[in-house]
């Protein structure tokens, strides 16, 4: 092996890559938050006993889960302007696509979690005179949260990496900058290894924290 790994190049590229990282975070965090909020509402729709809420919820979830994310992002960027006449910036299209996609997955996590709680919990609370919303908030969700945490952590990791697909819409996030730099310098090994390392440093603290929370929740019960 006589390949010379150019560390100097890594250092030189770092400012540009870190600018990309900022954009990646700007895509990642809002997608997760919007996805969770949307996913919760979708899960309620899916679990509703009213068909006019349940069926559209189901359709939405399956549409987003069963088609490639890459195509969803491209679609929001190119098709939406044609359909509704409003031009989205590449960043907005990517954020919209990621958030909607995340909401479909989050909905299934919420639904699975809520359904995993036995009906005895609902009955115990109903027998006291609690309303559906109160039961969900105070009895069901606090128990579900613990069970859902690993699944949500997985999803958050997935979304962080998925956000790299925004590079095809020329959103200047981490992967876009990485690809640009590696084709500029013809040194993909250095640049992309650095990019991977930055993704790792971005994601790992989250998984570490999640494991800690899981452990402390398990200790409490």
């Amino acid at each position: 092996m006589d390949y010379q790994f150019e560390f100097a190049l890594v250092l030189r590229s770092l400012p540009v890559l870190l600018r990309g990282l900022v954009v990646t975070i700007q895509l990642w965090v809002p997608s997760i938050l919007l996805g969770l909020a949307g996913g919760f509402l979708l899960a309620l729709a899916r679990l509703s006993d009213r068909a006019w809420l349940r069926l559209p919820g189901l359709l939405y979830i399956e549409l987003f889960r069963d088609t490639p994310v890459l195509i969803q992002l491209i679609w929001f960027f190119y098709a939406l302007p044609i359909l509704i006449g409003a031009e989205l910036s590449p960043f907005a299209a990517a954020l919209l696509g990621l958030a909607l996609n995340t909401s479909a997955y989050a909905a299934e996590i919420f639904r699975g979690g809520i359904q995993s709680i036995g009906k005895g919990q609902w009955e115990g609370a109903r027998a006291l005179g609690m309303r559906r919303g109160q039961i969900l908030r105070r009895v069901i969700l606090p128990q579900v949260f613990k069970r859902m945490l690993p699944a949500f952590t997985n999803r958050a990791i997935e979304v962080a990496k998925m956000s790299s697909l925004a590079s095809v819409l020329s959103v200047h996030e981490l992967m876009y900058q990485g690809r640009l730099l590696s084709s500029t310098y013809y040194r993909p090994l250095e640049i992309l290894t650095t990019v991977a390392f930055i993704y790792f440093v971005l994601i790992y603290p989250g998984t570490w924290l999640s494991a800690r929370i899981e452990k402390s929740l398990a200790a409490k019960a």
Partner: peptide, 23 residues
Amino acid sequence: EAELCAVRERVGMVFQQFNLFPH
């Protein structure tokens, strides 16, 4: 729902499986 909740406030129930809130 509101009417049933009002009834359940006045008619309490104890279950075979307790149904306590474990958290």
